[in-house]
């Protein structure tokens, strides 16, 4: 990540020098740094609420039951995670919340899943195959109801704001399939194993 990050920053400064927008950079740097804190702090509320509710669900045995429903699929996707590991339950909750378009709840579940997967990690700080796959699946975002987009379409006066539901589902399913295939392939090739 150090390589990617440095490249992005250097590319930005080089382009700015070229386009004559160096002055704008200074403002953007301070503004973005401030935004990172606002976004993180903004997450604290939903993180706290859903991590609390999740603990309640866990003690009631709900998380294990939900995880059991899709265990065959999860075992194939994440073979290195033990069958009864709490990470599986968190991952299932995260993926279901994403599917329903409940972004607020999905993030805490995903964060928790990632932390639980880290307990299985022999090389702390270096993503495991399971963590990389789980992250890639999340960025592909399979969802039934893209609520924000539908609201924007309705606001712009669309005759059928929700007519894009089916197309969105198919497109995001393609994204998830590619995320899984590419992650599995790259994991096997051990590409990116060096920093």
């Amino acid at each position: 990540m150090g390589l990617v990050w440095t490249f992005l920053v250097v590319a930005a400064v080089a382009t700015a020098a070229f386009t004559g927008s160096v002055a704008a950079l200074t403002g953007a740097i301070a503004e973005s740094a401030g935004k990172a804190v606002t976004v993180s702090i903004g997450l604290v509320g939903v993180l706290t609420l859903w991590l609390g509710l999740m603990k309640v669900a866990e003690e009631a045995g709900l998380v294990t039951q939900v995880a059991r429903l899709v265990r065959p699929l999860m075992r194939r996707l994440f073979p290195e995670v033990p069958a009864d590991h709490p990470a599986l339950g968190s991952m299932v909750l995260n993926l279901s919340a994403n599917l329903l378009g409940l972004g607020n709840a999905a993030t805490p579940f995903g964060v928790r899943a990632m932390q639980e997967l880290e307990t299985l990690n022999p090389r702390k700080g270096v993503a495991t195959d399971a963590q990389a796959l789980f992250a890639a699946m999340n960025t592909a975002s399979l969802q039934l109801v893209p609520a924000t987009v539908i609201a924007l379409r309705a606001g712009a006066g669309s005759r059928a704001p929700a007519e894009i539901l089916g197309a969105t589902l198919v497109a995001s399913a393609c994204g998830v399939v590619v995320a899984v295939l590419v992650s599995k392939l790259l994991a096997r090739l051990r590409i990116g194993d060096s920093p």
């Binding site: 990540m1 880290e118 700080g125 963590q131 990389a132 590419v182 992650s183």
Partner: peptide
């Protein structure tokens, strides 16, 4: 999760 090396997650994503 304190992960600093993303390995193949970025290209896959």
């Amino acid at each position: 999760a304190g992960i600093t090396r993303y390995r193949h997650a970025l290209p896959a994503a």
